[in-house]
Design a protein around this nucleic acid. Structure first.
Length: 876
RNA sequence: GGGUGUUUAGCUCAGUUGGUUUAGAGCGCUACCUUGACAGGGUAGAGGUCAUAGGUUCGAAUCCUAUAACACCCACCA
């Protein structure tokens, strides 16, 4: 078969992906093998693949592919998340572009649009994961809004409510005026913004005096219901019990005292707006102040805004400043930088707002989740540094606002039947709700039309926190075979940005609903940054198109590129040249096989000694590397595992082994060597397969025709075997000698086509890999004797061996002298440092014997070498 | 304002309970050679006061303290 000289990933990738799928290699059903389970972090249903996904999912695929090869029943469950805020925002924007306002639509109409959108774009990202080579069990694909998933969510809501963990509260929440919904604290980002600190004068009632307050938000003075001073502030003692006029209004509010006020900030005088600030709300409750909400849901002023009504809050801020100035009530304006909360999704400035919301009590639920990570170690976070972050959040956990004023999501299963605070029931559907409502109200006359379901939906994370359980239907059917087999899962691979949103809450739900951890290990990847260290983002436009990368370099190359740059848990500075390196590597392996494949086998040919010894070395060296690779996998050091395989293949297999066994040009190879080389190459392919699945599967089938049950993807990961350390060390010496000979040739300008002979001052019986040195050194023979007096030539040293090569090439005595002197000086310096150590009595007295023995050996070796060098120098 | 982490060659990073020849890898760079598997190979080389300053120790890139820079997380001072 003619093999092209360059590896072309195109065509090959789709061919093998289809093959794997047709043969159900990624499908998992419970059997008597041990399971190895990973649930995917479900990407947004309408999202597209970005570098973060590529990193994440490459890692998961590498882990699950290796597990599959190791004989586990590997199960990787894929799926998508409905991502309520993000998706709803996209749908709203799209409708708007079509000239439709959300407010014109009924809930049902809007949802119809949203579902259409989801069906059209949803799942695109899953197709993209296939291009990357992800070996998910696609038959298990779940969507967080699937009927069964929704039922699980509603059941959980009901259960938690019945346990008294879910309650309704009138609280200060984070309001996103753009999406017009509340957000949990975790969905608010704080950004440094340049603003102003406005100093405003409030007229004291019945006096000429004015008090000055400082605020960053002058517009909220329309909702002021008090001014607060510190009770011990000497500047304001005389104001106690008095009242002030709120500027631009006709309201008069009391001056209250509270030690919450910092005397050293601003003017030490604080305006209190209980409706629009968390702390002011607390002050308001403490001092029983009136609450005046001045905003509409969209951030414009409401009827309390007076002449500013229906104007936007930021416009009003400017206007009020201007109006205050006109009345000489604005004393001064100073620039002020402070942190402002913005919505993670819409970037709109968050408005603290009082409203009725549903909350989940977290403190009790969090307990077992804290213990699992920090005490029992049932769950391991990698890298470990995230333990601290986790601990801090979990120990200060606050109740979770789970209601969202959106339509896209699971509608809260609460049905109201009256105006009273307790006039509601929680039920899975309206018929059940009616039954419950009749019971609770004692009114058998209640009808469906008397019930009114809560308008809000649940936070997206309230469905994804069940993911590892609900994908196996473990909520609705807690005793089903699947959940019992696959749960708890093994690994979770995700970014640290959703440690609280998702990971922590999954751990909580695992213990709450199954009394068991959801996974054993959490591998937290770093963020993908560009080579300048900037976070990759759409706005910066520095994020490469993931699919284009796959197209340009091939999926295998991109996977390698990503893995090469990603040390566990650190951020990853991604540079496209890494993909090029991956591509070069693929090509290298491809051509290694091309070489082997091109050899003609001659069956009656005797195996040359050089091939025999080289194969022995590689077999041992492979085992050593494999042990190291396995160890790195256990520690999730995937990058290191790949690097050692990279060097094994490129340097050891291609540069050394193949060069050693390679027959002369045009010559045939013996059967034994060929068979062994193929066997070793196959082992290489096995351990490389999780990283480069397409290339390796392609070569695997090039080697010979295989039945479907012999595909590489389901073949066995090699078992580690014992290896001979001494043999590996001996080969290392041979390599050094070969390098020395090549160097000698280079310096003396001796072509490598010209045969030379070598003299070594050692016994042949102490020596291994003689044939290898002869072959790669281009030698006629090795003579185990010192340099014969009658010959002229040059010498070099490896450790304490002296190697001599006869040559009539003109010798440059000066250069040789210089070289020897340099070597001698180094060795003397080295010896001096060792001797200094050894002459230190305290070192000899305190250091372990092994260390001292080693130092003594170093010194002895160095002395021996110095003698050798001095002798050579004298000869010149 | 608190907390965590990072700081080792031009770049990205190893350095596994302080001692494995006066610091390593991959990539990149320079010079020469070579090219009959290969976007390839070979040899040599440049390049590091292991962030800085103290300390512990017979011995520190590794442990301790302080400082600096950067990164991330958390936090209601208007």
């Amino acid at each position: 078969m003619e093999i092209p000289s360059k590896f072309d990933s195109k065509g090959i990738e789709s061919k093998w992906y289809a093959y794997w799928q047709e043969n159900n290699f990624f499908k998992s059903i419970p059997d008597d093998r041990e399971p190895y389970t990973i649930v995917i972090p479900p990407p947004n249903v309408t999202g597209v693949l970005h570098m973060g996904h590529m990193l994440n999912n490459s890692l998961q695929d590498i882990i699950i592919r290796r597990a599959r090869m190791m004989g586990y029943n590997a199960c990787w469950v894929p799926g998508t998340d409905h991502a309520s805020i993000a998706t709803e925002a996209k749908v709203v924007a799209k409708l708007k572009a079509d000239g439709i306002e959300k407010s014109e639509l009924t809930r049902e109409e809007f949802l119809a649009h949203a579902w259409n959108w989801t069906k059209e774009y949803g799942g695109v990202i899953l197709e993209q994961l296939k291009k990357l080579g992800c070996s998910c069990d696609w038959d298990r694909t779940k969507f967080t809004l699937d009927t069964e998933m929704t039922e699980s969510v509603l059941q959980v809501f009901e259960k938690l409510h019945d346990q008294g963990c879910i309650y309704r509260g009138f609280r200060m929440v984070n309001w996103d005026p753009e999406a017009q919904t509340t957000l949990s604290d975790e969905e608010v980002l704080y950004e440094e913004k340049n603003g102003n600190l406005y100093h405003i004068a409030y007229q004291v009632e019945g006096s000429d005096e004015r008090v000055i307050i400082a605020t960053t938000r002058p517009e909220t003075l329309l909702g002021d219901t008090a001014v607060c001073i510190h009770p011990e502030d000497e500047r304001y003692q005389h104001l106690k019990g008095k009242k002030v006029h709120v500027p631009l209004t006709d309201r008069v509010v009391p001056i209250i005292e509270d030690d919450y006020v910092a005397m050293d900030f601003g003017t030490g005088c604080l305006k209190v707006t209980p409706a629009h600030d968390k702390n002011d709300k607390l002050l308001g409750e403490k001092h029983q102040l009136e609450v005046i909400d001045i905003f509409n849901a969209d951030g414009t002023l409401n009827e309390h805004g007076g002449r500013y009504q229906s104007m936007d809050r930021f416009k009003v801020r400017k206007l009020i400043a201007k109006d205050l100035e006109a009345q000489q009530l604005l004393i001064k304006t100073e620039p002020y930088t402070h942190k402002v909360g913005v919505s993670e999704r819409t970037k709109a400035v968050i408005e603290p707002r009082l409203s009725d919301q549903w909350f989940l009590k977290m403190e009790r639920l969090a307990k077992p989740a804290i213990d699992a990570v920090l005490k029992s170690n049932d769950i391991q976070l990698l890298p470990e540094k995230f333990k601290n972050t986790y601990r801090h959040w979990m120990e200060n956990i606050r109740d979770w606002n789970i209601s969202r004023q959106l339509w896209w999501g699971q509608r809260i299963p609460v049905y109201y039947f009256g105006k009273g605070k307790e006039d509601y029931v929680v039920a899975q559907n309206e018929n059940l709700a009616l039954e419950k409502a009749r019971l609770k109200s004692g009114n058998d006359g209640l009808e469906l039309k008397d019930l009114c379901q809560d308008e809000d939906v649940l936070d997206t994370w309230f469905s994804s926190w069940l993911w590892p359980i609900s994908v196996f239907d473990g909520i609705r059917n807690p005793d089903n075979k699947e959940i019992e087999y696959y749960y708890p899962t093994q690994d979770l691979v995700t970014g640290p940005d959703i440690l609280f949103f998702w990971v922590a809450r999954m751990i909580i739900s695992g213990y709450a609903f199954r009394d068991e951890k959801p996974f054993s290990k959490v591998y937290l990847t770093g963020l993908v940054r560009d080579k300048k260290g900037r976070k990759m983002s759409k706005q910066l436009g520095n994020s490469p198109d993931a699919l284009k990368l796959i197209d340009d370099y091939g999926a295998d190359a991109v996977r390698v590129g990503l893995m090469l740059s990603s040390a566990a848990g650190n951020d990853l500075l991604f540079d496209e040249t890494l993909c090029q390196q991956g591509k070069n590597f693929a090509n290298k392996i491809w051509n290694a096989y091309r070489l082997i494949e091109g050899w003609e086998i001659k069956e009656d040919l005797q195996q040359p000694e050089v091939a025999n010894e080289a194969l022995q070395w590689y077999a041992n060296h492979f085992e050593k590397t494999l042990a190291w690779v396995d160890e790195n996998f256990e520690k999730y050091r995937i990058s290191d595992a790949l690097m050692s395989i990279y060097k094994l293949l490129w340097d050891d297999f291609c540069s050394w082994l193949l060069e050693l066994v390679k027959p002369d040009y045009g010559q045939p190879i013996d059967q034994q060597t060929y068979t062994d080389i193929i066997a070793l190459f196959e082992k290489n392919l096995r351990i490389l397969h999780p990283f480069m699945p397409f290339l390796t599967e392609e070569l695997w089938h090039f080697i010979k025709d295989r039945k479907t049950d012999e595909a590489l993807t389901i073949s066995a990961w090699p078992q580690t075997q014992k290896f001979d350390q001494k043999l590996i060390a001996d080969f290392k010496l041979a390599q050094q000698i070969i390098v020395g000979i090549r160097n000698f040739r280079n310096e003396k300008n001796i072509s490598h086509k010209e045969s030379i002979s070598l003299y070594i001052n050692t016994e042949a019986t102490d020596f291994s890999f003689e044939s290898s040195i002869v072959k790669l050194g281009g030698l006629t023979a090795i003579n185990f004797t010192c340099q014969p007096d009658e010959l002229v030539g040059g010498s070099f040293r490896i450790n304490n061996l002296e190697l001599f090569i006869p040559t009539d090439a003109a010798e440059d005595t000066e250069a040789e002298k210089e070289k020897l002197t340099l070597e001698l000086n180094y060795t003397r310096g080295f010896l001096a440092s060792v001797e200094k150590k050894l002459s230190n009595e305290r070192f000899v007295a305190n250091a372990p014997e092994k260390v001292i023995a080693l130092e003594r050996k170093k010194a002895a070796d160095a002395r021996e070498k110095i003698v050798l060098l001095e002798k050579n120098l004298a000869l010149l």
